[in-house]
Design a protein around this nucleic acid. Structure first.
Lengths: 219, 219
DNA sequence: CAGCGGAATATTTGATCATATCCTGCCCGT
DNA sequence: ACGGGCAGGATATGATCAAATATTCCGCTG
């Protein structure tokens, strides 16, 4: 019991890690919010050790941040950090998309289209959480096709760093139209146009970054 | 005692982390070598909890790798992973070098020149460990000047992933002439030529990558 | 007499450890 | 070759210690 779904053989620290990761990614933890070990121990019903390990891992990935005095919180992005993230994502993710496009089978594409479908429905429904989940899923699954574990893990870390801010943006502006470059990417993918896929993904993530930038500037 | 230098206020898990990190970086742990918690507990004289946390952190950074069945080892690079690393480093590090060049003061440059001096002496001495240490130091200190924490942390992770293999290469071929693009970088830096610095660093790390590739191909 | 500053204390949270439990892989007997 | 024990090592817990923050209380000043 506790830690709810103990999905059989997964170790506790892994379960806890994923749980907290989702909390960061989908906005259950807001930027700036302090994260205490004992709080999580209480909320997740796990022991200290697994929680500790999960936090260390997430800290290494940049999803959480050491606040000097051995306290941990969700990082707040500055404009210059956003520039760094923009540069890094533009460097890595289009390449991953390119590789993925070269390897994608029709079934893979169909799967991604299904995810994108669900994403659009979430937007229409005004379901922020669903939007974030499916958007993340889309990129994650796309990059998984590239069979480039190192680059994919880098992309995952970058996603993790934008997550909380994206959530804030959506909370502020709702899920209104991101024109959805995913469609462009999928069309290019079907056409075997890897460069086009890379370009579409680049534009897609640029939109996200720009929205966050707007939000930061508006303060 | 134990954990040797307990540099006063640093928590044990931090000390342990740095220690293991160095072991990975400078070849005390070879690629493929299994890493056991209890082994490290014995070697470093620390408790299990700090060691566990350090390992989780290093695993997240790609310095160590889960071997499925809850065993951990130093990762062995494949050719395709080396390509990923090459791409990622070429994307990130020249940019960091460029930023660093724009911000560097004469004192900063002097410091880097001193490190490069020490590096060259280590090469002449045939001191592999010293070479690796100063080379790492050079890049680390250079990137620190860029004041771009996120990009620098990415670069650090990439460095960690090449570390063990670089060590193997040096062990095999000795410290014979890497023509030292550092000199070029430093000259460009003094001249205020940020693009030149970026180019030199790009060539520098490409040389390292190529050497590892040679080594992998030679088997 | 009211408000303020600061020292001492209380409480909250993090760090570490020793220990108990559980897996995994290996070795042996059949 | 198959299956069951055995040993080594990983995981997880709770207790204990230490540190940092919040709180309280007292004496002082305006």
């Amino acid at each position: 019991m506790a830690v709810s779904e103990r999905t059989s053989k997964l170790p506790t620290h892994e379960v806890v890690y994923r749980r907290i990761r989702e909390m960061v990614l989908f906005g259950e933890l807001a930027p700036g919010q302090p994260v205490t070990i004992q709080g999580l121990v209480g909320d997740l019903g796990a022991g200290m050790t697994p929680v500790r390990e999960a936090i260390r891992r997430l800290t290494a990935e940049g999803a959480l941040e050491f606040q000097g005095n051995r306290r941990v919180c969700v990082p707040v992005l500055t404009l210059s950090q956003l520039d760094e993230l923009s540069f890094a994502r533009q460097s890595i993710e289009p390449r991953l998309a390119h590789l993925a496009a070269q390897r994608a089978t029709p079934e893979d594409i169909a799967h991604l289209e299904a995810v994108d479908e669900a994403l659009n429905r979430a937007i229409e429904r005004g379901d922020v959480r669903g939007y974030l989940q499916h958007n993340h899923r889309f990129h994650e699954d796309l990059y998984a096709l590239a069979q480039a574990r190192i680059l994919a893990s880098l992309a995952g870390m970058l996603l993790l760093r934008v997550g909380p801010s994206l959530r804030v943006v959506c909370g502020r502006f709702g899920t209104y139209g991101l024109p959805d470059r995913h469609r462009d990417a999928l069309d290019a993918m079907r056409a075997g146009d890897a460069d086009g896929v890379a370009r579409a993904i680049g534009e897609d993530l640029q939109q996200g970054i720009d929205q966050i930038r707007q939000s930061l500037l508006a303060g």
